[in-house]
């Protein structure tokens, strides 16, 4: 199976205190970056689908990762190559010259060129939380889609059984390949992904694998191609226009009350919550 995994880097949310807004624009210089966690889950899922979990070094398919952004986003691609992806593509673009629709249209052109059996991606990026690219891409391709996958079972090369995380439970759907699948948190639980090559008794470690040191070095030699955004999308106009950014207001300091009765009084008469 050939799987295409689109990746996005996001500002490390644990360094949120460093985010600055300058003239209504986000200041991105100096931010620490990390891959969007849901995209990391997508890479992990793609690896699990295309390997024998008991001997992950022997690959049983191809995983291609792609990202959109300036040269330094190649760090994100190299990290994915180090965990096992086979090759990478960077679509050259400035961070603020992209939106979900443009990315989906460019991915459509890339999919037509690469002809993967499956596009696997995170259900959303944790920066904009737009939750659009997977759905738009499936529509533009005319492919079946299964969003919010918490489990995937691959029985043959023609279809997947996907357990979708929905309100109140799991909805199991069978999608015919080629298809677009977006993944949710539980996809990286030990038994969530059932590939063809891994024995059903094999349980994975919970979560995403680390990149081994030797693999990080080997990843430097794996192919990483650069593509111009204009070669994939003739119209690079954005549909989403951001009118401004501002930081959330600083929290006010709390107060100390002397007695429970005072607390109750304040909850009733000041906060008006009881």
């Amino acid at each position: 199976m050939k799987i295409l995994v689109p990746l996005k880097r996001v500002a490390d949310p644990d360094n949120a205190n460093k985010v600055k807004v300058n003239g209504g624009k986000l200041e991105t210089t100096g931010l620490e970056w990390k891959p969007n966690p849901f995209d990391e889950y997508a890479v992990e899922t793609a690896l699990r689908l295309t390997e024998n979990g008991t001997n992950p070094k022997a690959r049983q398919g191809e995983v291609v990762v792609v990202t959109f952004g300036p040269k330094d986003t190649e760090t994100t691609l190299r990290a994915a190559l180090a965990t096992g992806a086979d090759r990478a593509i960077r679509v050259d673009a400035a961070d603020d010259a992209l939106d979900g629709d443009l990315v989906a249209r460019a991915l459509k052109a890339l999919v037509e060129k690469e002809k993967p059996d499956l596009v696997l991606l995170g259900k959303q990026a944790v920066d904009g939380d737009s939750n659009q690219v997977g759905q738009l891409l499936a529509e533009y391709l005319g492919w079946p889609q299964a969003t919010f996958a918490g489990s995937i079972q691959s029985e043959d090369d023609k279809s997947l059984v996907v357990g979708r995380e929905v309100d109140g439970g799991t909805l199991k759907v069978r999608v015919t390949l080629p298809a677009v699948v977006s993944v949710d948190l539980r996809i990286v639980a030990p038994n969530s992904v059932r590939g063809k090559h891994t024995p059903p008794t094999h349980a994975y470690a919970d979560g995403v694998r680390f990149a081994a040191l030797m693999a990080i070095m080997a990843a430097k030699k794996k192919p990483l191609a650069e593509v111009k955004l204009a070669d994939l999308a003739s119209d690079t106009a954005l549909k989403i226009k951001y009118t401004g950014f501002e930081l959330p207001p600083a929290r006010k300091a709390g107060i100390k009350v002397k007695a429970v009765s005072e607390l109750v009084d304040k909850l009733k008469n000041e906060a008006k919550v009881v």
């Binding site: 360094n15 620490e32 990390k34 891959p35 990290a79 990080i216 070095m217």
Partner: peptide, 26 residues
């Protein structure tokens, strides 16, 4: 240096945090 370490058999495996989040996990 890492290549030498593995060559000498001092470690059987190793990982390197790829970003701050992984460093915290380690």
């Amino acid at each position: 240096w890492v290549t030498e370490i593995f060559g000498a058999g001092l470690a059987t495996d190793g990982v390197l945090a790829q970003h701050g989040g992984e460093a915290r996990d380690l």
